[in-house]
Computed example of a mutant assay.
Amino acid sequence: MKQLVKAIATFTFVILCFSQCKNNGNSKTTVPLPVMSKADGEKITEREISIWEFSKTKQFDKLRAILADDYIGYFSSGNMLPSDVINLLSKTTFTDYHLSNIKVKPVANDVAIIYYDVLQDVTGADGVKWIPKVSASSVYVKRNGVWYAVFYQEMPQG
């Protein structure tokens, strides 16, 4: 009998929880989506393109200024902190790059994802060419009025 009472109580609790949900069959959120100013979108795009240019021209002090202290680059070879990224890039031959299909998606008032396609001509210190076509994305956070890259990831294009 105790088990039956416990099962009924649990069932009632679950039904009450579900009854509090306001799901009308539409999976869209009722919370307003974040809106980003055109200027912020342009600033993020400018900073992301600058990362590529500073990598190519080996202006690592300028590159480091865009990367947040808590930045993580997520690569197939593992996670990289800003110092790891700069160390790796200092040993590469960065001949050329081209970014296309650039999109910026706000995810919160001070957080956005930029994603795009990359055509790159880069050779590592070991003499091996990097994958020429990748899809890349970065997460930017606005701190004290400045947009900083906090995360980067890329994957090969099929």
Rank of each mutant, 00 (worst) to 15 (best):
M1Y: 03
K2C: 06
I8V: 15
A9H: 08
F11W: 13
F11H: 05
T12N: 02
F13W: 05
I15Y: 08
Q20G: 15
C21K: 05
K22D: 12
S27L: 03
S27A: 06
T30N: 08
V31Q: 12
L33K: 06
M36Q: 14
M36H: 04
S37L: 14
K38P: 07
K38R: 04
A39P: 04
D40G: 01
G41D: 04
G41W: 06
G41C: 09
E46M: 08
E48T: 10
S50N: 12
W52A: 05
E53S: 14
F54S: 08
S55V: 07
K58G: 08
R64I: 10
A65Q: 02
A65D: 04
I72M: 06
I72D: 07
Y74M: 12
F75Q: 09
S76D: 15
G78F: 06
P82Y: 11
S83C: 06
I86K: 00
N87Q: 11
N87P: 03
L88Y: 11
K91C: 11
F94E: 06
D96T: 05
N101F: 00
I102E: 12
I102Q: 08
K103T: 10
K103N: 13
K105E: 14
K105G: 00
V107W: 05
V107K: 01
A108E: 13
A112S: 07
A112V: 00
I113G: 01
I114Q: 12
Y115S: 15
Y115K: 08
D117F: 02
D117R: 03
V122M: 08
G124P: 05
W130I: 04
K133F: 14
S135G: 05
S135T: 05
A136P: 00
A136N: 02
S137C: 12
S138M: 04
V139I: 15
K142L: 09
N144I: 00
W147P: 01
A149G: 05
F151T: 09
Y152I: 01
E154F: 15
E154R: 00
E154N: 12
M155K: 01
P156N: 11
P156A: 13
Q157R: 10
